[in-house]
Write a protein that binds this DNA or RNA. Structure first.
Lengths: 187, 187
DNA sequence: ACCTGAACACCGTTCAAGT
DNA sequence: ACCTGAACACCGTTCAAGT
């Protein structure tokens, strides 16, 4: 059985979604492919590189609805909603994408899209606001999505009580940061 | 050699600070104490419980300067600065405390302090703003501190270039969220 | 109460060798 | 180009047994 890189990534996404990030090991993925773990090192130099490819694949599978004519704050809100949707679509997706991004190994599309949208904001002296704003937004989006996914997992594992409040909390938190950004842009 | 729980925690903090979170294993800590790894299970039911105790210890070692008379937003800023200082004081402290908190195993003092401070804000219909605001702030503070610590680590490991901008970025990001909270409180 | 010794079921990674 | 087989240096956790 001989595989391409893409097939291995697709299978890794499957293992992630079915068994979670903790069970996505090189040995487990090898077994799933009917291959020795060492064979995976022909396709990826390390597990980190594999995970980076999985994170990028997850982001690519949910499309960001482009909206070039919309005002900057609507574009920002759209990008954040897209990141949330994309990462919530696969088990432990938020934690994985956040980790890969924070290590600088990939998953950079959300950051770049946010920086671009924030550059559209009218501001006399912009400074580093697009970059800092993008990071502030991503810390919130990844953090919130990771929490939400952990609660979803706990709920599906038997705990009937606290069902997650879905997108309501997300909208409020995002609204707080957007209000803050608008205040900075006006100044 | 017989130990108390507190001695084990103190030694774990030492191992964390010297070798990092990845090297803080039950086996490593056992070796450091001159004890079998299984002996640690007499003091803690699991590694997670040990890490929760380490996170709480790290937070307890840096004092939160209480300022009961100050306005709510200054108190919030003070708590966030305290969390940043406390977690940056030990290697991988931010990542550890963030993980423990997100798993609901401990490190709850920052959240509780922020909720209390946000309850001081004048607001007609407050709703869940204190809780959501506290989580939004903590996602930023933990995310930023974790990034900052990763950069510090990379810099001390040889990369001479990008030295972290210190507290400047932190102040800007925190300012954005505080502006957003003030806008919500006024409404 | 606190610890040892041994075991169980795992990890990521390397590397010579095979086809 | 892609994979096997074997090894190296690790993990967290359990549990009977010791003092």
């Amino acid at each position: 059985m001989r595989y391409h890189r893409e097939t291995v990534v697709a299978r890794a996404v499957e293992v992630l979604d079915r068994f979670g990030l903790a069970d996505l090991s090189m040995r487990r993925l090898g077994t799933e492919l009917g291959v020795q773990p060492s064979a995976l090192y022909h396709h990826f130099p390390s597990k980190q590189a594999l995970l980076a490819a999985v994170a990028d694949e997850i982001l690519a599978r949910t499309h960001l609805p482009a909206d070039p004519g919309a005002p900057w704050d609507e574009q920002v809100a759209g990008i954040c909603a897209w990141v949330r949707d994309a990462t919530l679509a696969y088990r432990d997706g938020a934690e994985l994408v956040a980790t890969v991004w924070s290590f600088g190994l990939g998953a950079s599309t959300p950051y770049e899209a946010l920086v671009a949208a924030l550059h559209l904001a009218p501001s006399a002296e912009r400074g580093d606001l697009p970059e800092i704003g993008a990071r502030t937004l991503l810390h919130f989006v990844f953090g919130h999505a990771t929490d939400e996914q952990a609660q979803l997992q706990a709920a599906s594992a038997g705990a009937i009580d606290d069902l997650p409040r879905g997108g309501a909390d997300f909208a409020v938190g995002l609204g707080i940061i957007l209000d803050g950004l608008r205040a900075r842009v006006r100044a």
